[in-house]
Design a protein around this nucleic acid. Structure first.
Lengths: 134, 134
DNA sequence: CAGCATCCAAAAGGATACTG
DNA sequence: CAGTATCCTTTTGGATGCTG
């Protein structure tokens, strides 16, 4: 089995995302999930409240938002804080760990912002060539 | 309903990943899917054959590999080429568009490689505090 | 307001069998 | 080798209703 482990080391690198059994894969899946990236990026400019997140991220349900928020909090990437008011005010913010992560994520977002048009063109080109319709 | 488009702007930016209806969201989902990121990153060092990809990406099934490969090809991010041999040799390579994308993606992978340990620690800390067992 | 629980629909994903 | 097709399981996600 091609599980080449760094000579001598007792364990495979935990951060190896290519290895389906490594924690790194789990982290990748949390961060790079349907909603994870958008949630993290929504927090770039400071703490944001639950309802604001829901409004910022088009199409997310409260259930999914809540669920992802819990996962990312557990991962130490974001932090939850409650102001004991009535009605309650809960906001979420990036931790230092999470903030590091937004650097490549922002690069990804920027790329999408500028290159999506190219992708759409490619899709159309592809569809024309492969569905020579009648 | 509630399709509030940012007032003032003539059209919603196609690349706005925060908007659930924009092509940018679709692109984000293709790139940042369970397998998309790993496939793209597997192609960093040049063309790779189907079976090699399957072996590199731990846990992926042939079905998912094939499916994602088709999607990313349609998006213009990777390119499929066949050497007409018997048995056939098919390989996949990044396009210029796809290569740009690997820059932030690589940043993400690097972060995972170096910070996964911190994430695991955070998870354990969290679990200890929230499951005060007995 | 922020959220969890429940129920149900839809999509992703895996195993297997089969083709050029 | 490099897939496709089919079937079936698992996961994801949404709608709704209820709490502090």
């Amino acid at each position: 089995m091609t599980v080449s482990i760094e000579a001598g080391r007792g364990a495979a690198a935990p951060g190896d995302a290519f290895n389906g059994d490594c924690p790194g894969r789990t982290v990748l899946n949390h961060v790079c999930s349907r909603w994870g990236t958008l949630i993290l990026l929504s927090l770039r400019d400071g703490p944001v409240r639950f309802s604001a997140l829901r409004d910022t991220i088009g199409g997310i349900s409260e259930k999914m938002l809540s669920q992802n928020l819990r996962t990312l909090t557990r991962d130490g990437l974001i932090e939850r804080s409650v102001e004991p008011d009535s009605p309650p005010k809960v906001s979420y913010a990036l931790t230092d760990l999470g903030r590091e992560l937004t650097i490549p994520l922002e690069g990804l977002l920027d790329w999408i912002g500028s290159r999506t048009i190219e992708v759409v063109k490619a899709q159309r080109r592809h569809d024309r060539q492969h569905k020579p319709g009648a």
